[in-house]
Amino acid sequence: MKIVVTSDTHNQNLPQKLISECESADLIIHAGDWSSMEVYRTLSSCAKVVGVHGNVDDNEIKEYLAPRDIIQIEGYKIGIVHGHGSKQMTEKRALEAFEGEGMDIIIFGHSHIPMMRYVNKVMLMNPGSPTDKRRMPYYSYGILHIDKTLRAEIVFFTG
């Protein structure tokens, strides 16, 4: 199973590189800050989409999507949250959002800083942003490959 992971799209103009990747995906996970339901509709035309709302999303998105979600795929428990809030770093807020719930993977966004690492046997993934790299040198998104094992990667591109 191929899962494309994205966040912080912030507009309707998704890059063709992301769209092409999504067209071959079994599932798309979006960790918030869509900015419009048009982004949801565009991604949904490629594959099934699950996600959460972020801090800049409008009421239409907030009524349709929860602030956090938990899904199970091939025996892996995946938590999805945007990660915004006050106090602490985004990564710490994402971990606390699922504390004690036995996650295998926590996907979050907000910072636009791509990262992937393990904390206490929980994979943390922030895919960065495919549309707003801020001070990062590249745009990015993530891919999870789940079959008998879990493989994950962050894809970097110039635009």
Score class of each variant (00 low, 15 high):
58 D>S: 08
76 Y>G: 01
158 T>Q: 14
153 E>T: 08
131 T>W: 00
34 W>Y: 15
6 T>L: 14
38 E>Q: 04
16 Q>Y: 03
81 V>A: 12
50 V>K: 07
106 I>D: 00
112 H>F: 10
45 S>F: 09
100 G>S: 07
121 K>T: 10
11 N>W: 00
14 L>T: 01
108 F>C: 13
111 S>R: 02
139 Y>W: 11
67 P>R: 15
147 D>W: 08
3 I>P: 11
128 G>H: 13
111 S>F: 03
57 D>R: 09
143 I>M: 12
29 I>T: 08
122 V>T: 15
113 I>W: 03
35 S>F: 07
94 A>I: 07
5 V>F: 04
157 F>C: 05
95 L>S: 03
129 S>H: 12
36 S>D: 08
41 R>Y: 15
10 H>W: 06
110 H>V: 06
44 S>L: 10
132 D>C: 03
128 G>S: 11
134 R>K: 15
10 H>V: 01
66 A>G: 05
15 P>N: 11
86 S>F: 12
144 L>H: 06
157 F>I: 11
66 A>C: 09
16 Q>N: 14
158 T>S: 14
50 V>W: 00
70 I>R: 07
85 G>H: 10
131 T>M: 05
158 T>W: 09
158 T>R: 14
90 T>L: 02
64 Y>D: 01
54 G>I: 03
122 V>S: 06
159 G>E: 14
46 C>P: 13
128 G>C: 13
125 M>H: 03
50 V>Q: 00
12 Q>C: 02
13 N>K: 05
120 N>L: 06
90 T>Q: 00
118 Y>E: 15
39 V>I: 10
55 N>K: 11
118 Y>Q: 13
42 T>M: 11
77 K>R: 15
39 V>P: 02
84 H>N: 13
43 L>S: 10
105 I>G: 02
96 E>M: 11
107 I>W: 09
12 Q>G: 01
22 C>N: 04
105 I>Q: 08
129 S>I: 06
157 F>S: 04
29 I>M: 13
58 D>M: 01
80 I>E: 03
23 E>W: 05
88 Q>F: 14
137 P>D: 15
62 K>A: 10
40 Y>H: 12
156 F>T: 04
36 S>K: 00
61 I>E: 01
121 K>V: 01
110 H>T: 06
6 T>A: 09
40 Y>W: 15
2 K>H: 01
103 M>T: 02
66 A>D: 15
41 R>V: 07
